[in-house]
Amino acid sequence: MSAVGFAILAGLVLAGALVVVLSENVVHAAVALAFTFFFIAGLYLMLGSPMLAVIQFAVNAAAIPILTIFIIMTTQSRRVRPASGALYLIAVVLAGAFLYGLWGLLGAPQTAFRPVSPEGLGARLLSVTLLPFEVASVLLLLAMVGAIVLARRLEK
């Protein structure tokens, strides 16, 4: 695995994420979100899991930003007012504290890794996690029904 490739991907992911959280234009943020997720899909490929990469690409890098842009268009809210300096400060401190905490959790360096074939992942998905798999399908159905119920206009 190339360190250069990882560095480039990581840099792109972080840059995209920063645009998402800093841009004053929400449309820009949504596009940046698509790119960020796209590069994370690249990271999954590097981890030897093409299946996960494809799903990441299809769902997170494509469907979700498109949905987001639809909502932005529906609500006509393109601009975000920037937060106050004090809030930025608090957020930076908290995020830093989190980073510090997570950093402490990093374990010993681990180098060997094992790629995962889509067949292997699928077989385990439908055996080890069969019940969560079914529950997840019910969850998606519920979300769909719930979204329709919540968002429809009440006729008067």
Binding site: I90, L94, A97, F98, Y100, G101, L102, G104, L105
Partner: peptide, 15 residues
């Protein structure tokens, strides 16, 4: 903010 503070307490506690 409260949510984040709670999660932070867990993470720092984990350290």
């Amino acid at each position: 903010l409260y949510l984040v503070l709670g999660a932070l307490a867990l993470v720092l506690g984990g350290v």
